[in-house]
């Protein structure tokens, strides 16, 4: 705990060393080494089934690897044996899912307020105030009393981001957060994430939005078949890499219209 507060910008907040993970017979991660510094935005790209989402799930202990070291904000995640210890970690690491997963029986405001008040024991009045600020940040102030079912996919995903932020996490994991959205609403979600990264939130994104990854990332990681093929600056990965596989993947995707970031669109 104390180690995490001591981490300053530039110090490693996430460190994976030789992480191996299998689901039954299927080897998903075959030795992942990755260091992420506080304040960084890291995009993980690569073909489907390459283990991108599993890396995120290792970081907040939703899955436990068979071997390897994982250190997140001073906590040795791979050594956590009790569920209660994993819960302590998850309170400090936000995650946003592809399918938003809002709680359908609660209003937007209550979706955001629930976890801080019930799990962290935060004061309700203060949390409601924080929730309203966050809703303003994701440009949904007027939807505070709506139910998730009344919102579009893009709006729901922005609420999900606000919900994760309300826990005041030290880093946020974004697991293909725009993959389930229709192209028109992708822009508004990316806009929110871009803002967040500019504010200095440590963010790890699994994404298929190549141009967005190029624009906002400090580091881009390319994974395939459970291994990190290469990592580096966006310039390196998207433009100057010698690796033919990455060139093929990046080139093949940027040809489509889907990867584009449309500034301000839909907002």
């Amino acid at each position: 705990m104390t180690a995490s507060t001591a981490t300053e910008t530039g110090a490693a907040i996430v460190k994976l060393e030789d992480v191996h993970l299998s689901f039954g017979q299927t080897e998903v991660l075959k030795g992942i080494d990755l260091t992420i510094n506080k304040g960084d935005a890291v995009s993980i790209i690569g073909p489907s089934g390459s283990g991108k989402s599993t890396i995120l799930r290792c970081i907040n202990a939703l899955v436990t690897p068979q071997s390897g070291k994982i250190t997140v904000a001073g906590t040795r995640v791979d050594q956590l044996t009790k569920e209660s210890e994993r819960i302590q970690l998850r309170k400090r690491v936000g995650i946003v899912f592809q399918q938003y997963n809002l709680f359908p029986h609660l209003t937007v405001l209550d979706n955001i307020v629930l976890a801080p008040t019930k799990i962290l024991g935060a004061d309700r009045t203060a949390t409601v105030k924080l929730a309203r600020e966050l809703l303003e940040k994701v440009r949904l102030s007027e939807k505070a009393d709506a139910y998730p079912g009344q919102l579009s996919g893009g709006q729901q995903q922005r609420v999900a981001i606000a919900r994760a932020l309300a826990m005041k996490p030290e880093l946020v994991l974004f697991d293909e957060v725009t993959s389930a959205l229709d192209p028109e609403t992708v822009g508004e979600v990316l806009w929110v994430i871009r803002d967040l990264i500019r504010d200095g939130m440590t963010s790890i994104l699994v994404t298929h939005e190549m141009r967005f990854a190029e624009e906002i990332s400090d580091t881009v990681v390319f994974t395939e078949n459970g291994r990190i093929v290469d990592h580096g600056s966006p310039q390196q990965i998207f433009h100057t890499t010698d690796n033919p596989r990455i060139r093929q993947f990046v080139g093949g995707l940027s040809g489509g219209g889907r990867g584009a970031v449309r500034d301000g669109e839909g907002i």
Partner: peptide, 8 residues
């Protein structure tokens, strides 16, 4: 999964 991610 969502509750787990939030530390419930």
């Amino acid at each position: 999964e969502a509750t787990k991610g939030l530390g419930f």
